[in-house]
Each structure stands twice: as structure tokens, then as C-alpha cells.
Design a protein around this nucleic acid. Structure first.
Lengths: 380, 380
DNA sequence: ATGAAAGCGCTAACAA
DNA sequence: TTGTTAGCGCTTTCAT
């Protein structure tokens, strides 16, 4: 068994010139063999391919991109993965020991990593592959964010950026060089979104409106509490708009709805709700996202309240876990993977036709009625 | 509001030369301002920066990488996302309609996308960011796989590849050009893993052994069924090794264990188990992964069998959903994100010291005992 | 502190 | 069918 890396430390990585030499052809022919094989006589091609094999030649993507004026890469930037960025854990243990731990339920469930971005990323990856592009990702954290985005912008053909990842200024700056599409940029409070960019987002407001309409009109609930997200979240703002729209349409006073300010995380959903429940128990708890709803479910269970019999609970996002909770969680499913795909599609389209009119698409959402807030009132 | 993209269709993207012209300096100075700002007089620097701003200049990463002989990018290759690759769904609807659907539990749960890779990717991304690298991903599908990997290999400084993504030949080929680390390459059946590469994997065998030891020794189970994975899965092979090791150590005949061949997917776990249960009901169902275990849970519930009272069920992977099932799923948690981080770390280390001895590390796993197969027998 | 000039490894005319 | 030759946009000595 080898005791050292495949590549000897002193090896210079071979270039077209090396291959050309070894195959006794010009570098142009080497290039042709790789890019347009049919334009080369069979025998020559074989010789070149052999040389490639013998030398372990891998063409430099950078040189190729430079000469060809395109990279074949699309960049995807989104905010950092919160769960992992905070804890600065120790180096992993490399022991062979297997710990066996009692992990039965105790207290509130810890925050799980944000699955939202994972799915967007997955969708983007799939679409990029289909279109023959590679994908470069940067989940920005901290001040280095702008630097890295700028950096990435210089190595791709187009960029998809999730809202609020980087400053608008930077966005506009790089958009002068390459196509940029903005993802999930919900209605902003105050500032206008950067102009001149393609947008792809999800219809938060309509989804929440449909859900709440179901709750108040179909289930006849008059007493509900909204467990909000962070005050500065555009997503939350949009969802609240939908909430109010539904109330208005049903002729309900907005004041009937109490707001509990959460932060989209599971433990807060839990804490905020636990606090609220000490005072009063509404008929329905409409949560701004699934994580909070999961927290609420936990809090309710610990207080011995039954869902949906005593309280209806709804979430928003459509996380997979929602199908496995007890009871399964009613929610509004966002087409997250679809969002990623649509983003890549938008970039590629813009690349193909730089002059096309600006795109601003909203992907439809879906209300999934499950046991935590069922299609009809089954509590009687 | 703008009705056209920021970048006018005819704009040539500005280069160092344009910036240099506008700032009345040489291109060398422009480069210095960007790379080593302190080596430039303040006034000059300002002028250059202004020009950068005015022109919307973003340096070409490719040119930079070419001249600098390094890209600052690490590549990550893994097998395609199965869930999405199969269905070739229609273009998304762009209507504003919100569908409201009854999504209450009916029958087996559909397959959810493979969360395994998502987490590895997340870990890799975090570590890459920390080390100042960008990450380029390719989830290969189909025959184009090798092509794209080769392609990516040409545009990164190092590569992390999940086992079985591409042919060994290709792996060895590209490893001659840059550092390659192989991920989760479990013991193979037959062929030797490519030599001369760094390896990072997870201790499948030890994990399964610890889990089964618990089942047979602590819980005293003698009648168990193993719901296996695909016959060609090295992961499954390792887990089976662990299973047998535990049986041997407990003095149990391997023949007491019936194998049900599954394929790691939720619906098969369900189908295979449903079939089995028609014939006999063992005391414990040891599943090769969590997805199958989830399917098993479903099948058991539909037959009115109680977990853990009638049957113990265990999984393997440590997916987050396992904490929310009824009952919560006992499993072996793989440090998936850690795997991604370790991979990037290995690549970066190899880059730093090409001559270092080969790395072959196994990350420890953790047995999580939850209600589906608890620490002690509580059924009496 | 700044400039001139030589590449980095490849593609794409244009010639032959 | 194959070779010659300009760049692609940047970094980096080496001078000045």
C-alpha cells in the first residue's frame, strides 16, 4: 500500500504544451482533441489522448475560461448557516470509541439547522447540472461576506443571491459585470429593492392569507394568536400582510389578533408560547414559520394541551419534519427546491438574452392541511 | 422602476486596463491596490478605488487564478440527488393561485430527499469559508459525471469526492494534478480503494456493533431481523460487519438473523417490512438506515403493532426527523456535517504540506437510544 | 512608490 | 487536417 500521495511533491502539473510535445502535435491540435474531437484525424486523436492519459493531464479551467470568455459556472450566495457558525467546536475526536447515549425526549427540542437553504441549494444544483453549468456556493458570514461575493462574482458567468445576503450596493456593483438574480426578496420595509435585477420569490402573503382564511372562515376560529418572526424579516412582514388580508376579508378586527414576537427558531417558538399560555389559551396559534410551530407543539404538549382539540397550530415553510410530528403539522409549503431551480434558470436565461425584459416571478405556494389544523373541525 | 437589466447589452466588462486608464496609473498599481493596499500611496489608492467604483470593476477570478497559480476554490463532488433527478417535472406554474390540499396521513410516507449529502455539503461549506476558500459543487448524475468532475478538477486547488461518485480511474488521474480526498469510502467488496489518496470516513461497523450489542445483550433480544440496504452498498456492507461482530461476541448464531433486502429508501423499508410482517414478527427490526426505519415504523403502525412494546426498531444515520417520529427513533448518528468539514480540512492540509503522510481518518459515531428501542426494557 | 514587461495555460482566428 | 499566433486579464519580478 502506498505511503505517500499520488502526486510526487515535485511534479509540475502538465499543460497543453507537454501533451503536444509528447504527441508530436501543436497545442492547437491538443485543444481540438478536447473541444472538437471530430475535427481531428482519428490516429492523431488517439496519440493525443494517450499523451493525456500518460501525463495525467487535466486542462486548466481558468485558462480555458479566460481564453473562452466564459466560465460555465454559476454562483449562489446565501446567508450563513446559523447553527454551525455560532458554535466553534473543538476538533473532532478521532478515537474509535462509540458513545451510547440516552437520547429520549427531555425538554424542548434543540434548534435544528436551517433546512431552507439546503433545499434551495439542492434545487439550484440540479438545474445547474441540467443546463451544463457547475455551481459555486458561498454562504456568507461576517464582514468577509462582501469580499467573498465580489470574489465569486469574478469567477462565474452569473449569480443568484438570496435576499439580505449582501449589501445592495455590492449587488448593483457586480450586476454591472454579470447577470444577478435576487431570490426571495420579499417586500421590504422602507427601502426599495435594488432595481434592474431579475427577481424570483415565493408568494408568502397569498399563502398565509389562504391559510388564515381557512382557519377563520372554515373552522370558524375567532380567537387566534400570531407567533411572529423577527421584526426585520421581510418574509415575516409579507406573511403578516397575508394574515391581515384574511382577517379584513372575513370582517374581523385586526386587533383580535395578539402578536407574540419570535425569531423563527424552535426554542423561541417554544419560549414565547410557553409564556403566552401562562396567560391565556387561544383557539389557534398561527406561527410565522415551521420552526416556531414545532416549538409551540412542544410547549403545548408539556402543558397537557391537546392539538388540535384544544388548540389549532399552523406553521409556514413545509419542512419535511412537519409530516412526522404528533400531530402532523398544518403548514404552507414553499417550493424551496423550485426556488433554487428557478433562480438558476433565470440566470441562464439572462445569459442567453441579455436584452430580455426584467423577470419578476413569484412561485406559488401550497397550503397543506394536516392534523394540527385539519380541513374540518373534528373536535366534537 | 427600471425596465431593463442594469448592464446595458453592449457594455464591455471593464478590466485592469480600464481602471488604470481612468486613474492614470499603470495596471501594476491597480493590482497592488487590490492585493496589497499598503504598498500604495494613499492618494493613489483613492484614485484607483474611485475608478473601480465608477467603472463597476470586478476583477476576473480566472485571470487572477491563472496568473497566481491558485484558485482559492475547493471542489466537492457527490452522487446526484436521487429524488429530484428522476422526476422531470413540468415548468413551474407562475400563477398566483394557492392550492389548499388535505394532506393528512394516508399510506406510506413518500421518499424525502436524501438529507445526508445536504449536511455534508453544509459542513464542507462552513469549513471552506473558515479557511478562506470558496466551494464548488457538482452532484454528478448520468454519464456526464466524469466529464464534469474532470472539468471541476481543472478549476480548483483541491477536491473532495464522495465515494462511488466517479470511477477510480478518473480519481487517480485527477489526483496527479491536485489533492483529492475520498469521503466515506467504506470497505469495498472486492476491489481495493484507489491508493495514494487521503481518506475520511465514518465508523459504520463500530456503530452498528455497539447498537446491536445493546439490543442483544442489554435488551436480551434473540429474535431480530436486519433490513439491509442495496447489495452493492459499501456502507451497508460495513454495517453488516458490525452486526455480525456483535452477534459473534454475544455468542449468537448469525443464522438467527433474517435479512430483508431493502434499498435505503423509505418506501422500500415499508414494503419489505410489510411483506415480512405478513409471515412473522420479530422482537427487533434493525434497519440499515433511517429511511428504511421510518418506512418500517409506518408499516408497523398500519398493522397495529406497537413500538417498542411489540417490536423494537432501530435506524442508522441520525436524521433529524428521527427525533420527531412516534416513537422517536433509536439510531446511530453519523457526524455528517463533520464529515464535510473534515474533508475540506484534509484538502487544505494536503495543500499546505504535499509531502505529509497519507491521512486515513475515521470519524466516531454515536448511538442514540430513543423510545423506539430504549436504554432498558420498559415493556413490562 | 510606481511602471514595464514577461508570463500563467488555453482558445480561436487565420494560414498553410 | 494541422500549425502559427494573438490575445484573454491578471500577478509579479525587476527596474526606475
Amino acid at each position: 500500500m502506498a505511503r505517500h500521495p499520488v502526486r510526487a511533491a515535485g511534479d509540475r502539473t502538465p499543460t497543453v504544451y507537454d501533451v503536444a510535445d509528447r504527441a508530436s502535435v501543436s497545442i492547437a491540435t491538443v485543444s481540438r482533441v478536447l473541444r472538437t474531437p471530430d475535427a481531428v484525424r482519428e490516429a492523431t486523436r488517439e496519440r493525443v489522448l494517450d499523451a493525456v492519459r500518460d501525463l495525467g493531464y487535466v486542462p486548466s479551467g481558468n485558462a480555458r475560461a479566460l481564453a473562452g470568455r466564459k466560465t460555465g459556472v454559476i454562483g449562489l450566495c446565501f446567508p450563513g448557516h446559523d447553527a454551525l457558525e455560532e458554535e466553534d467546536r473543538p476538533a473532532p475526536e478521532l478515537t474509535d470509541g462509540v458513545r451510547v447515549v440516552d437520547d429520549r425526549r427531555r425538554g424542548a427540542a434543540p434548534q435544528s439547522p436551517n433546512l431552507y437553504f439546503d433545499e434551495v441549494l439542492r434545487g439550484a444544483e440540479v438545474e445547474a447540472w441540467r443546463r451544463g453549468f457547475a455551481l459555486m456556493v458561498a454562504a456568507g458570514r461576517g464582514p468577509a461576506r462582501d469580499v467573498i461575493v465580489n470574489d465569486i462574482a469574478g469567477r462565474v458567468d452569473g449569480l443568484a443571491v438570496l435576499a439580505r445576503t449582501v449589501s445592495d450596493d455590492l449587488l448593483v456593483h457586480v450586476a454591472r459585470r454579470l447577470p444577478v438574480v435576487l431570490l426571495a426578496d420579499a417586500a421590504r420595509t422602507g427601502a426599495e429593492p435594488p432595481d434592474g435585477l431579475d427577481h424570483v420569490s415565493v408568494d408568502n402573503a397569498a399563502g398565509m392569507q389562504a391559510l388564515v382564511t381557512h382557519v377563520v372562515e372554515r373552522l370558524g376560529v375567532r380567537d387566534l394568536v400570531y407567533v411572529a418572526g423577527p421584526a426585520d424579516s421581510p418574509d415575516d412582514a409579507e406573511r403578516q400582510r397575508g394574515l391581515f388580508a384574511a382577517l379584513d376579508a372575513a370582517g374581523l378586527d385586526r386587533a383580535v389578533v395578539e402578536h407574540v414576537r419570535g425569531d423563527f427558531r424552535r426554542d423561541t417558538g417554544d419560549a414565547a408560547v410557553a409564556d403566552l399560555l401562562g396567560r391565556r389559551v387561544p383557539r389557534a396559534l398561527v406561527c410565522a414559520n415551521d420552526q416556531s410551530a414545532l416549538g409551540a407543539l412542544d410547549a403545548l404538549r408539556r402543558r397537557g394541551l391537546r392539538v388540535p382539540d384544544d388548540v389549532y397550530v399552523t406553521g409556514f415553510d413545509g419542512l419535511d419534519v412537519g409530516r412526522f410530528t404528533e400531530p402532523p403539522l398544518t403548514t404552507v409549503a414553499q417550493p424551496m427546491a423550485e426556488l433554487g431551480r428557478a433562480a438558476v434558470r433565470a440566470v441562464v436565461d439572462r445569459l442567453a438574452d441579455p436584452g430580455a425584459p426584467l423577470l419578476s416571478s413569484r412561485l406559488p405556494v401550497q397550503v397543506l392541511l394536516r392534523e394540527s389544523c385539519p380541513p374540518v373541525d373534528t373536535s366534537m
